[in-house]
Write a protein that binds this DNA or RNA. Structure first.
Length: 156
DNA sequence: GTTTAGCTGCACT
DNA sequence: AGTGCAGCTAAAC
């Protein structure tokens, strides 16, 4: 058995962002005000750092090449669908629910379980009559959406 | 126009 | 089997 590798990517932003990898698979990501030490060894982690740096410098980035963990079978179904939402676009809980033949409430439950925000763009899912929730705080959700909509405006 | 009751599907105990 | 949600809708104030 190969030795398990653990790596960590750190990107500075309004709220700093951390992504952690095991064996080249992203297992966790979170926002923090603190600073954590980076540990980048593989090419996968290097590319991820590049993409994240671009993303937080307000560039449109696609994260679909990266492997991530899904907490449950159901969450995987929902989150895979969420990953298809393109940069700058938003979709509502209910339209996702319709496509997956489930309820908007259940979609919310699945999104709450997402371990890797930004890389799985759960912030692009909003409520029909408002913003909806966000596990790392709705303020961050608002910032991400504002940045993305601004960037996709400029890219016209 | 705003608030509220009831429904929902799934995970966790 | 029962509880609690990152929502929605229609019915009531």
């Amino acid at each position: 058995m190969r030795e398990p590798t653990f790596e960590r990517v750190f990107v500075k932003w309004k709220r700093n962002f951390v992504a952690e990898l095991e064996n080249g698979v992203i297992v966790r990501a979170y926002f923090t005000d603190g600073v954590v030490e980076e540990k980048v060894e593989t090419e996968t982690a290097e590319i991820l750092k590049e993409r994240l740096t671009d993303y937080f410098s307000a560039k449109p980035v696609d994260f679909s090449e990266f492997r991530v963990v899904y907490p449950t079978r159901f969450a995987e179904r929902v989150l895979r669908e969420v990953r298809k939402i393109p940069y700058g676009a938003v979709e509502t809980y209910s339209s996702l629910a319709g496509r997956l033949s489930t309820s908007p409430r259940a979609v919310g439950v699945a999104l709450r379980m997402n371990l890797v925000p930004v890389i799985v763009p759960c912030h692009r899912v909003v409520a029909k009559g408002g913003l909806g929730g966000f596990s790392s705080g709705v303020e961050v959700k608002k910032l991400l959406l504002e940045m993305e909509s601004k960037v996709s405006q400029e890219t016209l």
